[in-house]
Design a protein around this nucleic acid. Sequence first.
DNA 1: CGGGTCTTTGATTAGGTTCAATAAGAGTGG
DNA 2: CCACTCTTATTGAACCTAATCAAAGACCCG
Lengths: 292, 292
Amino acid sequence: MFSTQMPDTRSDSPPSALHSSSQEAGWQRQGKLWSNLKELCDLLRIPAATSITDEEFLFQHVQFKTGQRIHTIGQPFDTLYIVHSGFLKTVLIDEFGNEQVLSFPMKGDLFGVDGIHTKRYASEAVALSNCDLILLPFKKFTALGRAHIELEHAMYSVMSRELVREQAMVSMLGALSAEARVARFLVSLSERFAEMGYSSKLFNLRMTRHEIGSYLGLTLETVSRTLSAFNEIGLISVDQRSIAIKDADALKTLRRLPPSSSRAKQGAAKKAKQAAAAASEKTEPWDKLATA
Amino acid sequence: MFSTQMPDTRSDSPPSALHSSSQEAGWQRQGKLWSNLKELCDLLRIPAATSITDEEFLFQHVQFKTGQRIHTIGQPFDTLYIVHSGFLKTVLIDEFGNEQVLSFPMKGDLFGVDGIHTKRYASEAVALSNCDLILLPFKKFTALGRAHIELEHAMYSVMSRELVREQAMVSMLGALSAEARVARFLVSLSERFAEMGYSSKLFNLRMTRHEIGSYLGLTLETVSRTLSAFNEIGLISVDQRSIAIKDADALKTLRRLPPSSSRAKQGAAKKAKQAAAAASEKTEPWDKLATA
DNA sequence: CGGGTCTTTGATTAGGTTCAATAAGAGTGG
DNA sequence: CCACTCTTATTGAACCTAATCAAAGACCCG
């Protein structure tokens, strides 16, 4: 029924008539129709390829409505997506049909990268709100990257960033308590909203408790309970999907209460000091590496 | 004390005298000194850049001894590493000095990718055994990629593969029970050993219970107990670091006993069917996408 | 207004952590 | 070569976090 919404991802080059004549007309309406390279870089928060103002390199936008799937698992891969506006989720689906939420892409996020390796998407992307996405045909993009080194490096950079993000996720799931996970989730959401120009103190959750729970490796009941607990302590104010951050610092510093595993016996003190030093950028211990 | 082991990662171009004259001599001894592009591709298990047999593109090897650190968190990034032989771990270190194991790189694995984005390594890599690593100066490599498209694509491919791997990790941590995690860990280790030409049935763990636990989001006690349990049931045979796989199928099919969260109510059946279809590659439901 | 989804809250259970003590290896030095 | 030490592994017992089961209320949309 919504098949007319589906973009033709194969039309790499925009019809010149369209983007030259209707440029001003369709530009502001219900999402842009085309973006140039500079806008892409701005969106991705990367140094930006200032040398390329080439207006010929335009990228198509597509709109999706709440609930629509952008791609499914196993579908042949040929394009990456950048979120221009709106909220989504990416999920893995196990053999029993259970969803595992992997990320909540929002403005400036790239997704679809997991399809490069096997030439098929490894995850499913679903719109949690009406979305405006920019299509990045992979072939076209790598070709562009070959001509513009900064762009190529930007691609590596973004993929690397994604990897680091996943690592942080693994670390969180492996070491933090339920409270700490929910707290961090709220903080990172708050920060993302701030980056996007929204209020960092008051916002609406775009996802269900179930989706949050899946993302954080918790049950929806635990998420709900934890939010209620934060509410009672005065850290936040919750009412259904609306969240008001009351004590951001407390949320940020809320470490694992009793949870986790590892705690290096005698090496802990030394290592902590080391890590602190590395963080403060004062001493730099990587000159005496490889010293067991 | 081991500082003489440290390679000079800045010498991008091998002294031609060395690789032309001592090629056969130093080639087989205690790890190669140089590898060409084809060997790299073989190692990385990617299509291989058959068009490039250019012997000029040689990559330096370096040896590390057990316990040595290859790079630390915060250290300026300039090179990627490919494991030629040996076993390592990559870890994150939190503010208290606790280690969170992220991966156990072994033959054919690439690591260091997390340094691309911020120009500094985001994790620490430590040798769990004597290792022979291939240095991949990032600058040099991207330059090469520009000249040889297949190589560039290989890089994207490997990074994408890493991302998928991390996603699988997140999924496991978020949804599987302790038993299932340990079982999967053993299975994947077994498969890796098989790929490397070792026995898939009998092998030695290169890492401690503590490291396994950190990797799987469990305590060392739980890992130990679970292994003992598998031992009693007859799935495996354990004695300290040595593992004998007795019933690989049982380990593979050992799903989460009671654990996890998410369980789609009405959509589950449909979704499961869908996922199964996608897996069996028979029907392909991605033509009617975006249908809520 | 009614069916369905989403959320909250309670009671109970259980899986996994924590604390603790012992044993087995590995490495060191006399 | 053996005593000594340090790291690693095993196992037990108690506790506790988070999952499970259950039920009721809130919200949304046609």
